[in-house]
């Protein structure tokens, strides 16, 4: 294993340790998506009776949204943890490590991908318990891959903000990005049932295509027609948000 890969693994491992080290900050991110799933199902379950609703029931429609919320919380947590490291001076010491800044960035955001598996698994299990049909192994594997991709993208976004503001006080901004991206999609109803303005936003929101990718198997079958736009959206977000984070890393301390 190369030295750089070892650094990425070590930083990723350290990021995962934050779940146990700062439980007060981790618990909301872990539980909130499941609470949203159960709560939204209880509240808005009757929406599935609307003509044109494409799923058998609301809970099946909303499980993929909960999984993506798990990704959003995990991505935001990466930035909040980095801001804490910056405030405490640990990040300045990390910058002294003889490794390229891109390697350090990869290590920081790698933990988000793994971390996102936890809340999204809890959401999936909760969904299965309340009666959502098993979507199939392939669909679940694809869903988790997309969840990890979104978490990594949003970790890049929150990392950029952490590097700009250098304080945990920017946490709401970090959380808001993922919150908006996930909910301003056909999260609660199929596209044809959305309000006009929401439909317009959802069309240009890349997470709409990620959600359609994750929703496969839960609603309808897994098809390449819904898979490639999801992969393309993740790739595009990683490119744009990753570039911003890399730029922030390069500029830090210079």
């Amino acid at each position: 294993m190369t030295e750089q890969a070892r650094i990425v693994l070590w930083l990723g491992h350290r990021g995962l340790n934050e779940i146990l080290r700062v439980p007060g900050a981790s618990i909301p991110g872990l539980l909130a998506p499941t609470i949203f799933l159960l709560g939204l199902t209880s509240m808005f379950g009757a929406a599935a009776e609307l003509p044109g609703f494409t799923a058998d029931d609301f809970k099946t429609f909303i499980v993929p949204v909960g999984m993506l919320q798990g990704a959003a919380f995990s991505g935001a947590a990466t930035g909040v943890n980095l801001a804490r490291d910056i405030e405490r001076g640990w990040f300045d010491r990390l910058l002294l490590v003889p490794a390229p800044r891109l390697t350090l960035l990869a290590g920081i955001v790698a933990s988000a991908a793994l971390r996102s598996l936890l809340p999204s698994s809890v959401v999936l299990i909760a969904g299965l318990i309340i009666g959502v049909d098993w979507p199939g192994l392939g669909a679940v594997a694809l869903a988790f891959a997309l969840v990890m991709g979104l978490a990594t993208s949003l970790a890049c976004y929150s990392t950029t903000l952490a590097l700009v503001f250098r304080t945990q006080q920017a946490a709401p901004l970090m959380q808001m990005g993922g919150f908006i991206l996930v909910l301003f999609t056909p999260a609660f109803a199929p596209e044809d049932l959305l309000a006009g303005w929401m439909h317009a936003i959802a069309t240009i929101n890349p997470v709409t295509y990620v959600l359609a990718g994750v929703r496969q198997g839960f609603v309808g079958d897994v098809t390449w027609a819904d898979t490639w736009p999801a992969l393309l959206a993740i790739g595009g977000m990683l490119l744009v948000l990753g570039s911003l984070a890399a730029r922030g890393m390069r500029r830090t301390g210079r």
Binding site: L50, P186, A195
Partner: peptide
């Protein structure tokens, strides 16, 4: 003075309101 205090007070509920209204506006016909 602290943005982390102001955001939950109005911004998050407003965004949630927008998401609900945009996504579930047709439910008034139920």
């Amino acid at each position: 003075r602290r943005p982390q205090f102001v955001a939950p007070l109005v911004v998050f509920p407003t965004l949630f309101l927008a998401a609900n209204v945009g996504g579930l506006t047709r439910t008034t016909s139920l």
